[in-house]
Design a protein around this nucleic acid. Structure first.
Lengths: 134, 134
DNA sequence: TCTCGATATGTGATGTTATTACATTAGTCA
DNA sequence: TGACTAATGTAATAACATCACATATCGAGA
């Protein structure tokens, strides 16, 4: 299951950019950071992101149109659980967590309602502890 | 508590458009539907939506950049739990529900982590019962 | 080796979503 | 009236994402 994916050149560049960043980046920010490496067009970024999302190495934050490297790189122990994100609106930091009870309750609802789930987004917006006390 | 908000002309037009729709609409779709009523620019829609979101009469679906009239018109009191949405990718129908356990678990995490939550998004993408059996 | 097919890449144009900036209008109230 | 506030009108632009088409790269057979 946990295959180590061979990344292509562009995928590697995009993934490294996200890994080095200390918060989520938009596709266009990634593009700008990779101009020096020959990137010229948005599609180069979006295509790489698509694969990285497939591989589970990157997450998309729907509520801010941004992307972030997965916080649990080689640990897929939570891979059948849904991942939730807490996004600080002050500093931009994202905390990733997974809660079995939430996963369970969502599954409960989908089962009860015959809904075939493909992807679930859970994003909490607010102010993180560090920014809240500052 | 549940104040009936006086809606302005544009807010009323936008809200009625969303209410009549049998699924979520994008801001630009709303705009097109209201051209006959004098709407000319996106901002007219976005400004109305902003207020309607404030009033809790409309929800924004982050994962599809669209808006939908609240399914529970009367008691929109914020003290109730977080609202989750199941969005069918076949027919576009949205089911709105609220789960106390999920609300509880999210609050638990935010409390434990000193995160001051302002807004939470829970969106399930997939195929609804009707489309799944069809 | 050559050719085929699959995958990856390059590039410009276009489509879609959202905001900024500034002008105008309408209602409230001292 | 005048001054203040909320709502509206409009153009331009910013931000996010995809389409269409050309080219390149690489591995599996003939």
């Amino acid at each position: 299951m946990t295959t180590a994916h061979e990344l292509t050149k562009n995928q590697t560049l995009v993934f490294n950019t996200l890994s080095r960043a200390d918060g989520p980046l938009s596709a266009y920010t990634i593009l700008d950071q990779l101009r020096g490496d020959g990137f010229r067009a948005p599609l180069q970024v979006y295509r790489a992101l698509e694969k990285l999302l497939d591989y589970g190495m990157v997450h998309r934050l729907e509520s801010i149109n941004a992307f972030v490297a997965c916080a649990h790189p080689h640990n897929h122990s939570h891979s059948h659980g849904m991942t939730a994100f807490a996004i600080c609106e002050k500093c931009g930091q994202v905390s990733e967590f997974s809660d079995d009870v939430i996963t369970q309750r969502v599954r409960q609802w989908t089962t009860d309602n015959g809904f075939k789930q493909t992807k679930t987004t859970i994003e909490i917006r607010g102010v993180c502890a560090a920014c809240g006390t500052a």
